[in-house]
Design a protein around this nucleic acid. Structure first.
Lengths: 150, 150
DNA sequence: CTTGAATCTGACATTGATGATAACTCTTAC
DNA sequence: GTAAGAGTTATCATCAATGTCAGATTCAAG
């Protein structure tokens, strides 16, 4: 597939896809005229790259990490060097700290939101019933559910 | 206290503290000569600002948010406007998505780390026993424990 | 008063992913 | 073949917090 379609499928801009290539995160065959031609696996790869970016890893770390990741097609993955493993453990700890921060911040937001919601119910007796944001047995649970790893 | 001590106590650079002031996030009395003189509450406030920054909120949002937060001294907190509440709900959702991403990324890291660890045990029969990263009943649990809000 | 440490303001740089534009080339459908 | 749309490279810009440096001023202690 070509860059436009990959961009559409992944939601990542063409600009970023070219940037990923320059960083060594993503490769593509080239057509005779020089246009990039991506394999199907590129979609998954791009999505994973995005997740790792979102987790705060820098492209350099991701470059080292990618060949060690079990691909969707279960290709042979390299074994991380001790040096890399060390870095990854640190990243893991950083991610844990970040999640703890996020929980605190989310609680802060909830306090403010709840206070406003309560206030409005008291003073105005607002029309709509208050919707609890954290649904009890929710299926949409992106936050509360299943944080622990399997 | 003065800026140097506040920086030391919070771990935030003096540069950032001045920046916070310029953004309207933090206020300080001024000494006769113009030096900043912070109240004790500044420590908590700075820490909270840092957490909100870490959660991806921009200073403008934090500026609006801060007066609505229950202070440590339980001062009278303003009620968030509906407009702000709307923004905060969106931020909340963004944070939830971010946490879900973080979990996925952490799992990816774990896979790579585990694969390396296993490999090394197989080939080298490494000296040290493998330390489980996720301690079972852990107290250090910054990640697994207590993600759900109270 | 003097001296050294701390602080002040202000300006410029950095970081890293991404946006935007320009000028040119390829692909594809007609 | 041609025109339109998509792709190419390259460069400059942005954002937001923070680093850093320079020159002037203040504070605290001897």
């Amino acid at each position: 597939m070509r860059i436009g379609e990959l961009a559409k499928r992944t939601g990542v801009s063409e600009r970023s896809l070219r940037y990923y290539e320059k960083q060594g995160l993503l490769t593509a065959e080239r057509t005779l005229g020089g246009h990039r031609d991506y394999s199907d696996g590129a979609v998954d790869r791009v999505i994973r790259i995005q997740e790792l970016f979102a987790a705060g890893l820098h492209s350099k770390k991701i470059v080292q990490l990618l060949p060690c990741m079990r691909d969707a097609d279960g290709g042979p993955s390299e074994i991380a060097t001790p040096r890399l493993v060390n870095d990854l453990v640190e990243e893991r700890e950083r991610i844990d700290r970040m999640m703890a921060d996020l929980v605190r911040s989310r609680d802060v937001l909830d306090e403010v939101i709840d206070a406003a919601s309560d206030s409005r119910r008291q003073t105005v007796t607002h029309l709509e019933d208050r919707q609890p944001r954290a649904l009890p047995g929710s299926g949409s649970g992106t936050g509360e559910a299943a944080i622990s790893r399997s």
